[in-house]
Design a protein around this nucleic acid. Structure first.
Lengths: 224, 224
DNA sequence: CAAATATAATAGTATTACTATCATTTATGC
DNA sequence: GCATAAATGATAGTAATACTATTATATTTG
């Protein structure tokens, strides 16, 4: 993926002014990723972001209506990019089992190298996805946000992996349930490991969570 | 459990004044359960609760510092009560496999009959747990809240079921990961079914989620 | 029935999450 | 290179939230 300079396209419904159309817009995105990481999504405000980028709050509001919209933009960016990663990792791989395993790796691990495809720090962004993304859809106005396509990129990822599951076992009845359980589970287990270790197990090596879910899906689909 | 009149004891760290020590306290609990259900946790405020029970905001603050503390109280109540339910459902059942299956049913399904053990509406409370409980621990101050035992009741439930898993398969390395994945997964799948159906599958009957996770755990632990 | 305790009534503050206005800077088309 | 449009900056203001404080009035309890 390195040096490919792909463009992540985000649906215009998800912003009021396109962030990558201006320097300010790009600063809003990249600084917000830093700040949300540092202080968590709740403590993050447009006022603080404004101070950090030396621009008034009101300028930020021209790009996003509120911080939830910004979070949805970030998650959409991440999932759209992750769909590219899935495609890259699985093209020309004949075995669906092998493709599935590759996908599980990608969705259960935070990003470790910045591919530098843009002004977005993918390492920090993936941290946000793991620890904060559920706040994008666990909200009063899910229905309304869903209607404008806020979660389409996430759905596409789930659908794409579910398709591989169906290729392996066409009779399996709950591919989406399985994949979304794994994605959300991996996010939460990482959070538990950091903050509530009694809810998870001693993590021997950093791939323990990935191995757990790989093993799980292989057992469920009878892959040896 | 009906008519047993058990007392759910909540650690004093989790409130500033004991809610079941007064009529007002009990009203705060039972009305907040109703209101959080109706409007969601974000829209819920102590001001609205005060209006609903005809008491000033400031009186509510004598029982709980803020609405997050109240939510933690409610989740602790639920998990303490659920631990009783687990014990009741599994005592005198010799087979650990059978006990495990009973536990999976209890943790993956919302409550359907109000056992009437108190002023708490358990049906509505379980709805809150399924849709809002992650907001109790997905917050800036997890560490601090964890230190005072805010999540002990939840941990006890996970531990108790993990013990059964270990009884069945003493070599299994990730019992807590497995159980917390199932609990959190069941909550989320129900939420997805209601709000983001593309992330889950057509639910044929209302036990589909329970059956999915039962099947999952049985496969993983090689129970036929 | 007195003293202690709990609750009600009311007011006030800092912060958040915006909206509005107008001046100034920057970009763009000719 | 200049006129015009568009974007941004500077500043102010508002309603709601999440509290804290104070004093009066009930209610409980010993």
């Amino acid at each position: 993926m390195k040096n490919l300079q792909i463009q992540i396209e985000i649906s215009p419904e998800l912003y009021t002014k396109k962030p990558d159309s201006s320097g300010l817009g790009r600063e809003i995105i990249s600084k917000s990723i830093e700040l949300i990481n540092e202080m968590g999504f709740e403590a993050f405000t447009f006022k603080k972001l404004g101070i950090a980028i030396n621009s008034p709050e009101s300028s930020i509001y021209r790009y996003f209506n509120n911080k939830q919209s910004l979070l949805i933009y970030l998650t959409s960016w991440y999932w759209t990019w992750t769909e590219y990663r899935l495609v890259f990792a699985t093209t020309n791989v004949a075995s669906p089992e092998e493709r599935l395993n590759k996908c599980i790796e990608i969705i259960t691990q935070p990003v470790e190298v910045d591919d530098d495809i843009s002004y977005v720090n993918e390492i920090l962004l993936s941290e946000i996805i793991f620890s904060e993304s559920l706040k994008a859809y666990h909200t009063k106005n899910v229905a309304e946000k869903n209607k404008i396509g806020s979660f389409q990129a996430y759905k596409n990822v789930v659908q794409r992996i579910s398709d591989i599951v169906m290729e392996i076992n066409p009779l399996f009845e709950y591919p989406h349930m399985l994949i979304s359980t794994i994605i959300e589970g991996a996010h939460q287990q990482k959070y538990f490991a950091e903050h509530l270790p009694a809810l998870t197990d001693k993590i021997k090596d950093k791939n323990a969570i990935t191995e757990f879910y790989k093993e799980m899906i292989n057992q469920i689909l009878n892959i040896k």
